[in-house]
Design a protein around this nucleic acid. Structure first.
Lengths: 342, 342
DNA sequence: ATTGACGAGACATACGTATGTCAGTTATCT
DNA sequence: AGATAACTGACATACGTATGTCTCGTCAAT
């Protein structure tokens, strides 16, 4: 049983190769009746286009762009280096991949940068910025140019993206809750929740998930109101030491976002090692070191290499018009401790 | 900057296309001097063979085989269905994938089945059986026929495999130890360790890892000698209920291998839900349900889809003579709870 | 001087698909 | 009916690589 080719289709349908090509590539100038016969032949013979041969013939190179937020964010740095790593892999075969760093804090700046893109030389964009009305419009504009867009890390539910590559942050929060609950089995006390900013939807969703699990399954643990850092190390030190002295029953700290370096510093200054359970998100040089040193009990992770490769695979599939294999593109919520660090 | 082709190499080296082809494909009839010039040109222009075009021209289809143990093993079932799922993906493009089930308990039977293989119609094998001298010889035989072999799940360190696809079981055991230690924070007591058989190297390595972490980091927890089930449900019930009554300070059960269904049944009969911390390996229908029901606190997992796809990617890369991307082929030790179940 | 082995080049064909040209055939509209 | 537009097929060329055949020069051994 050998794979059928366009020639087989042409023979089966009783039309010429040109007509088959016209049907397959959605060109005009083909009678409905013949189009039907070609489609029937495709179905009957189980023809699937040989994407490699097609791309070879098309001499096509894809151009993909990652739009990422700049800033003092270690997580983004790991994404950038994963993108660079992935360039030179089978995945980015026949594709050029670039990274564009934008100031995500300023929606207008983001949109301005997006407007400057040369859309004619672009096939797909993976974008990681908070969703604002301006951003939503910019994405609509990009998409109207026939460019595929996937949301990365943070979903953009109101923008018409082709795909979301990232974890479900509500589940991530629930996972944090379950982990804290099990780490504090049979204990009573309160949990400090910190993040850089509750404006980011990620933090909001994680907080919801956390509260749901703790309230339902671990009622002896109480979560304190979220403390926001606003990227200010001084504020981190001050608020943390204040919270620690204010809550004598404090049992754990859960950091939902970035700013882990300063937070860990502040913890080291104020409490003895191992006194509190400490949980954070994302594997960076900081959290990695903290796991090694025992300053963090566990980190909730979305594998960045997987994230980047998945985004590239999805964009390629969209461009090639092939199906994506859902199971492979599912980003898992991983729990990393010192012992299963990679 | 466009990708150089064989034509560019020929021009650069001042030889004909045929000569370039002879050098690139290791054929004879090339003067050393010319071979050098071609190699220099390849390096200078940064030529990399277009694998897709090459495979297209070669009209090549690869044939891969998964050799897996039969038996009442849910884990193997998940592998088989992952293999079937993956057939029909980009990964197995230009490849046929088969599964061969063998009776791993009988090394001679395994070897007999391996000897019956038509090696001329085979390009790569992913094999998951315990390593015995007979198996080692059979693998050497397969390899001597120019077929690539990767070890799956259990490493075969004394066989000359091309790759190992699976987790480090020593680290997996350490992860279990850390998890138990953190789940039983501030508690004192003993931990029951069960498995089907300590003959499998996986179990031995996991046990080593477990003991190392518990002894070093959690000295208040004591591990009991490993109980072996030998695939006997009655024995599971009997030994478990005996162990539970014999150790009044029992705090946790860690199941290192298969046989989880019967073990969970036995636990449900003998103890109240939530009384013990329960840990197991591998995500199957059984452990999945037990996580949902709260009968298992966590499962240590090697993602089976990833496992299968990695094996296929590695085999393809070996056949194509391309590099494998290590970071992508690293199988991670995942910790799954009800909240991050996928 | 002849033979033969080896090294090298020129050229052709193929893989499955894309795409263009051009001549020729229908269908549709006035 | 004639003009026009819509459709169709035959054919060629290309993508980058593989692989075959045929030719020819070189060099050493007979």
């Amino acid at each position: 049983m050998v794979k059928p080719t366009v020639h087989d289709i042409a023979r089966e349908a009783g039309v010429s190769l040109s007509t088959v090509d016209r049907v397959l590539n959605g060109r005009k100038d083909v009678r409905p009746k013949n189009a039907e016969r070609v489609k029937a032949a495709v179905k009957k013979l189980g023809y699937v286009r040989d994407t490699n041969a097609a791309n070879l013939a098309k001499q096509r190179r894809y151009k993909f762009l990652f739009v990422l937020p700049v800033g003092s964010n270690h997580f983004v740095e790991t994404i950038v280096s994963s993108v660079e790593e992935a360039s030179g892999t089978q995945i980015v075969d026949r594709a050029d991949v670039d990274v564009l760093l934008v100031n995500a804090a300023d929606p207008h700046a983001v949109v301005d940068r997006l407007k400057m893109l040369d859309l004619s030389a672009l096939d797909g964009v993976a974008i990681m910025v908070p969703e604002t009305p301006q951003v939503r419009d910019a994405i609509a504009h990009i998409k109207s140019a026939g460019i595929y867009v996937v949301a990365l890390v943070s979903d953009l539910p109101n923008s018409k993206c082709d795909h979301f590559v990232g974890i479900d942050n509500f589940s991530a929060g629930k996972t944090a809750g379950a982990l804290l609950g099990k780490f504090l089995r049979n204990e009573t006390g309160s949990i400090l929740v910190v993040t850089n900013s509750m404006v980011a939807r990620d933090s909001i969703e994680r907080r919801f998930g956390l509260d749901e699990v703790l309230a339902r399954d671990f009622p002896s643990l109480k979560t304190l109101p979220t403390i926001e850092f606003y990227d200010d190390p001084d504020r981190i030190h001050e608020t943390l030491s204040h919270a620690i002295s204010a809550h004598s029953d404090l049992k754990a700290v859960y950091s939902m976002g970035s700013g882990n370096a300063a937070m860990l510093d502040a913890l080291r200054e104020n409490i003895a090692p191992g006194q509190l359970v400490v949980l954070a998100h994302d594997l960076t040089s900081v959290t990695r070191q903290a796991l090694q040193d025992g300053d963090l009990d566990a980190v909730i992770v979305q594998n960045v290499g997987h994230l980047v490769r998945s985004a590239l695979r999805v964009l390629r599939a969209k461009c090639d018009g092939t199906n994506i294999f859902e199971a492979q593109e599912q980003i898992r919520i991983e729990i990393i401790m010192r012992e299963n660090l990679y």
